[in-house]
């Protein structure tokens, strides 16, 4: 898995690519932790290049969302989620916990 991050005026954008599984989830968590460590809690995640996410990756998402939403200081939004990953998010009941946008531009613009 590879991850790139970019800072925008109103949010940070994270773009993982490849597989997010038990081996790579710590790297995904670290990228998100680094953003929160800067005091940024408005985060958009571009899923367009993610091939697979396991429950280990979902744990990272839920823990990050809890931290970001604390004190109403921000939230995590998801963008360009491939169909199979969306059905994983639906099964896990995540579609009520995260705003999901069709494309990155709309997600970034929502903050």
């Amino acid at each position: 898995m590879q991850i790139t991050s970019a800072q925008y005026k109103h949010c940070d954008l994270v773009k993982p690519s490849g597989r997010i599984d038990s081996a790579t989830a710590p790297q995904f968590a670290e990228a998100l932790d680094q953003i929160m460590a800067k005091g940024q809690y408005k985060i958009a995640i571009d899923f367009s290049q993610v091939e697979f996410i396991s429950s280990a990756g979902l744990r990272v998402l839920i823990n990050t969302q809890k931290l970001c939403k604390r004190y109403n200081r921000g939230e995590v939004a998801l963008a360009s989620v491939p169909e199979n990953i969306l059905s994983a998010l639906e099964l896990a009941g995540f579609t009520t916990l995260f705003k999901i946008y069709e494309d990155v531009l709309t997600a970034v613009g929502s903050f």
């Binding site: 744990r59 009941g93 009520t96």
Partner: peptide, 22 residues
């Protein structure tokens, strides 16, 4: 419980859900 509010979500058991449902 995949319907619980965010603060009450635990981060375990999701993997088994995928095994059983899929």
């Amino acid at each position: 419980d995949v319907t619980a509010p965010l603060e009450e979500r635990t981060d375990h058991g999701l993997g088994l859900l995928f095994i059983r449902k899929w």
